[in-house]
Amino acid sequence: MFKKKPEFERMNQLGKQGIPFLFVIDFECEFPVIIPLDEASDQGIFYDFRGVSNTSRLATNELSPLEFVKKPVDFETYRHAWIAVMQGLNFGNSYLLNLTFPTEISINRTLEQIFHQSSAPYRLLFKDKFTVFSPESFIRIEDGVISSFPMKGTIDANLPDAADILMNDSKELAEHRTIVDLIRNDLSMVADSVRVKRFRYLESIKTNQRNLLQASSEISGNLLVDWPSKIGDILFRLLPAGSISGAPKQKTVEIIQQTETGPRGYYTGVCGIFDGKTVDSAVMIRFIENQQGKMIFRSGGGITVNSEAEKEYRELIDKVYVTAV
């Protein structure tokens, strides 16, 4: 699907030697960044992955109230891409595709301030290029067990009976089952005894606009004892993440590349750390990028043959937010 760059072999070598490192890998696997963990801050890269961090939060009590304005793509532009995706779905080339678009935003915060103000399990500041505040884990490896936690299905938590509405939504259930099956198959390429440990559990997300409920699942498998010497190979086999591409993966990615406005770059890629014994990583969603002085927020959603363009367009816009501390 994508060409394997030398950086993946470098990960194998660092893993074999037990040398901790940070990885930041773009969606197309064109520009993977691999840095010894103790050198990341020197290169202007800061992270906080579930409390493991190379920085401390900056004080934010002197910041002015948040000003946040979205300038989304117009509906007709979105609908044109949606129609192209639906053709691929109706031809049977894909049965779930994650369609994404950039949204220009106006915000009275720098990337660094957004990084420090955001509340999310996985936060990354990549120089002056982009910041990530992702709720979604990609893979974790601990004690020889690899686990993935795909997220699929979101609803406004303030709606009456929000949890019941989300859990009983047949479209959301179908999408979630598809992604769980895809991730289970992906993990089976690198692990044995793959099993679904938790199916469709709910988590809360606090944003600057509203509170959300997000549905996730947990899938796990057993790795061979020499897995650290194969970290790069494992990651490459699993990329791109199924939850932000679709199924079947190869054909779906081809449709994405033909339909979206350009390469995704680091958006929907993965970032994480190997600490010498374990791996923790995230899918780079909730992503704000500095493009020649303009702040661009990337977002999207899963499309199936049962999708409605208006609802998917609204979901894309609703996912443009910053999380609050």
Rank of each mutant, 00 (worst) to 15 (best):
F199M: 12
E254R: 07
V194F: 06
V190Y: 07
P248T: 11
L238Y: 04
L182Q: 05
E254C: 10
G246H: 11
K206C: 03
C271F: 03
V180T: 07
I234K: 01
V190P: 09
I219R: 10
D181T: 15
Q257K: 12
K277R: 09
L212M: 11
F274S: 00
G272E: 00
R200T: 01
D181A: 15
Q214W: 09
I231C: 05
S193N: 15
Y201C: 10
S243C: 08
K251V: 04
K171Q: 11
S220M: 13
A191G: 10
W227P: 12
I205A: 06
K230L: 12
E254F: 09
T259E: 07
T207S: 05
R177S: 04
M189H: 13
V196G: 08
A241R: 03
Y201T: 09
L224R: 12
G265I: 03
A247L: 11
G242W: 03
E172T: 11
L238W: 09
G232D: 13
T178C: 07
V270F: 01
L238E: 05
I255A: 03
Y201W: 14
S204W: 08
S193P: 09
I255L: 07
Q258I: 02
P240K: 13
S281Y: 00
Q250S: 11
V196P: 05
G265V: 04
Y267P: 00
D181G: 14
S193H: 15
R184N: 13
D233C: 04
R264E: 00
E218H: 14
V180R: 08
I205D: 02
A241E: 04
A191S: 10
G232M: 12
A215V: 04
T178P: 05
A241V: 08
G276H: 01
V283Q: 04
L182V: 07
G246M: 10
S220I: 08
T259F: 08
E175L: 04
T261L: 15
R264N: 00
T268Q: 02
V253A: 04
T252L: 05
I179W: 10
V225R: 10
I205R: 04
C271A: 10
F199S: 06
K197A: 04
T268M: 02
F236C: 02
V194Q: 04
G276S: 01
L223M: 15
I231G: 05
N211S: 14
S193F: 12
W227E: 06
Y267K: 00
S243D: 02
I183R: 06
Q250Y: 14
L235V: 08
Y267M: 00
P263Y: 08
I255G: 01
S245C: 12
P263S: 12
P228V: 04
R237P: 03
S220G: 10
E254W: 08
L213Y: 13
N185H: 05
V279S: 00
G262Q: 06
C271W: 00
P248Y: 11
Y201H: 15
D275H: 02
D186F: 03
N208K: 05
S193Q: 15
V253T: 02
G272Y: 00
S188K: 15
L202Y: 06
E172H: 08
K171W: 04
A174N: 09
S216A: 14
G262K: 11
N208P: 09
R200P: 03
L202R: 10
I219C: 14
R184C: 13
L224E: 13
